[in-house]
């Protein structure tokens, strides 16, 4: 949170940043899984950068609405695994807030499960949320971005996609597939639209399993600690605005990914 406070004092309050008279038309950012953790931190930082943020949530309605009020954005409910729902919500966001300049696919779940115990429904749901979350969002925002010849898309993956894991094969496969999607779209949509990936290591959010908070694990991270949501959000916002970067996989992970 300290990053946000620093940003606030340096760059002014959310509302000052958004004065349409002084700033011209505000760029719009859409963030999925925005009600908490990395998504909420990203929404706050985008807002400080001058974006009007569409705060997408699936279940956490009150948290999403509180955040939307805080950042002077707007909250929208949608299931990222549902292509029709995502197309509809993008249409609503563009009608109500304006053309989307930045799209962040961040929504996700994390479940630990042994290979033999993965149910068909669990596998399907994991792939539909993580890979589908990126695919359905990209599919919905691309036509408008292409028409405007401008846009930036960031997928939030995981360092586990690069390193594997002993206990979350559906999650790892889905996040790894998301990297393949980003690399394909980076080539397909250049030069108008950039597509990048942020693959965070273990971050202090409710999704983080207890095993990743154990001292013996944390001490195995070269930088000696887990990350904060603000540190990941800073990476996401940076990559979203990095105008000569596309198809990149950036892994803020305390040194867990050194390759």
């Amino acid at each position: 949170m300290s990053f946000c406070r620093e940003g606030s004092s340096r760059e002014g309050s959310y509302r000052e940043r958004r004065d349409p008279v002084n700033r011209g038309p505000q760029p719009v950012a859409i963030v999925t899984g925005a009600s908490g953790g990395i998504g909420a931190a990203t929404s706050r930082q985008l807002s400080l950068k001058g974006y009007r943020v569409a705060v997408l949530f699936f279940q956490s309605s009150s948290a999403a609405h509180a955040l939307a009020a805080e950042v002077d954005g707007r909250a929208y409910q949608a299931d990222v695994a549902d292509p029709t729902a995502m197309a509809d919500v993008v249409t609503r966001v563009e009608a109500e807030l304006g053309p989307i300049a930045v799209a962040i696919s961040n929504a996700g779940t994390y479940e630990e499960v042994a290979l033999e115990d993965v149910t068909d429904a669990q596998w399907r749901r994991t792939i539909r949320i993580h890979l589908g979350g990126g695919f359905h969002l990209a599919r919905a925002v691309v036509p408008g971005m292409r028409a405007r010849r401008r846009g930036s898309i960031v997928f939030v993956a995981s360092e586990l996609a690069l390193l594997g894991s002993t206990h979350a094969s559906p999650y790892v496969a889905a996040k790894s597939a998301l990297i393949g999607l980003a690399r394909s779209l980076a080539r397909e949509l250049a030069p108008e639209i950039r597509v990048n990936v942020v693959a965070p290591g273990p971050v202090d959010t409710p999704l983080l399993p207890d095993r990743d908070r154990r001292p013996e694990y944390v001490s195995s991270i070269p930088l000696g600690r887990i990350g904060s949501p603000d540190e990941i959000a800073a990476a996401i916002v940076h990559v979203a605005e990095a105008t000569w970067t596309t198809g990149a996989v950036y892994s803020p992970s305390g040194g867990l990914v050194i390759q």
Partner: peptide
């Protein structure tokens, strides 16, 4: 790409 992650996980 997903198969590469699956390879590492399994």
């Amino acid at each position: 790409a997903g198969l590469i992650g699956l390879t590492r996980a399994l």
